[in-house]
Design a binder for these strands. Structure first.
Lengths: 205, 205
DNA sequence: GTCTATACTCGGATAGAC
DNA sequence: GTCTATCCGAGTATAGAC
């Protein structure tokens, strides 16, 4: 009995991990149930046994992914450090989180694009939304106090762009720059430091 | 005879325009031949008559798209203005071009991701590659002359990120900021001016 | 719970009449 | 050149034996 339960949990967990991998790389439509089954070391029928349909399986994985996004954006919410420290904290937090899951950014962008309504709703309830709004508000306050300059939305959008794009468009950029996987990883690693300086200078009065 | 030829050209052209629309939004795999046929006001069989297969049709459209990318990047290559003017020129050129074709950026990123080898080859032959390399080189020279500071690749990547991301992740960012289509368009329009100031400050010595 | 066999659906491609 | 009918492969989902 215990054994059965454990087996079940293990299989379920194995499927989830496999599904995450495959969905992140290929998206909902692009993912193949066979690929997920292979990755999990089981056969297709099992997937249906545990999760009924592809869509249902995706929803589970996707909820996890949103959870991760919340955490990333949570890098924002912390404490009441001065704005420049907060920015530094966000850049490092996001970039490090993204490094351990490079496919994630493009995945989210795409799924957002294909199902805007679903996400609009999701955004309201999730704490990613509130964390971000809070951060934008911090920027607004700092601008009012003349600690930094520029339109708050533009500043926020710029930070997101600078952090996310290099991961989302990884293959394209790598090809453009003619970098190897290793070189690009190095570039991304060094980028944290560069970005903090770059952004801080860009918005200083 | 003339009439037939004209009809043929017209149909072919109609298909190309329809295909471009559908492929840009849905990508190669996501696009449906039926959707293209509907958009062009003909039936599916015609698509095959004119372009044989979906892949062949895509290649034609894609070549056009790369052509467009070349032009965008061509905004770089121009003349020997001082580096800061060149940057300004690039930002305005790219953003305006992207505004008239907002789906393009995400499309390219995705197809790149899914077929890296194909593009790596494409990059070598196309002049988009050379135009970019030239621009990176300009940045390198300017850094050496101490006109600007920072790692040239980081600077280049930052410019691309700042310009491309707001279009590529349009829906996601809009949702995050809670903007309407109109508000977001305004944000993008104002962004050109913001970016030039932001970047110039960020890399000034 | 796990497997094999099979049903069903969708979408790209072809044949053949006009 | 254009249309209708049809084929065929791929991929999801289910039935049923073990």
């Amino acid at each position: 009995m215990d054994k059965m339960t454990d087996d079940k949990r293990d299989t379920e967990q194995a499927i989830k991990e496999a599904a995450k991998k495959v969905f992140l790389v290929n998206g909902l439509k692009g993912a193949r149930m066979q690929a997920i089954a292979d990755e999990a070391g089981i056969n297709r029928a099992m997937l249906h046994y545990y999760f009924r349909t592809k869509d249902k399986l995706f929803e589970v994985i996707f909820a996890d992914a949103m959870q991760e996004m919340n955490q990333r954006m949570g890098a924002i919410a912390t404490s009441d450090l001065p704005i420049l420290k907060k920015i530094e904290h966000f850049v490092y937090g996001y970039m490090e989180s993204a490094s351990s899951n490079p496919e994630f950014d493009l995945f989210i962008i795409n799924e957002f694009q294909q199902n805007p309504d679903y996400f609009t709703e999701m955004m309201k309830t999730s704490n990613a939304g509130t964390a971000m709004k809070a951060f934008v508000h911090e920027i607004e306050k700092a601008v009012k106090k003349k600690e930094i300059v520029g339109d708050p939305h533009q500043i926020f959008l710029s930070m997101i762009s600078l952090c996310v794009f290099p991961f989302a468009a990884k293959t394209m950029v790598r090809t453009m720059l003619g970098h190897s996987e290793k070189q690009y990883t190095k570039l991304l690693d060094e980028r944290k430091k560069f970005l903090v300086q770059f952004v801080v200078k860009g918005i200083s009065p």
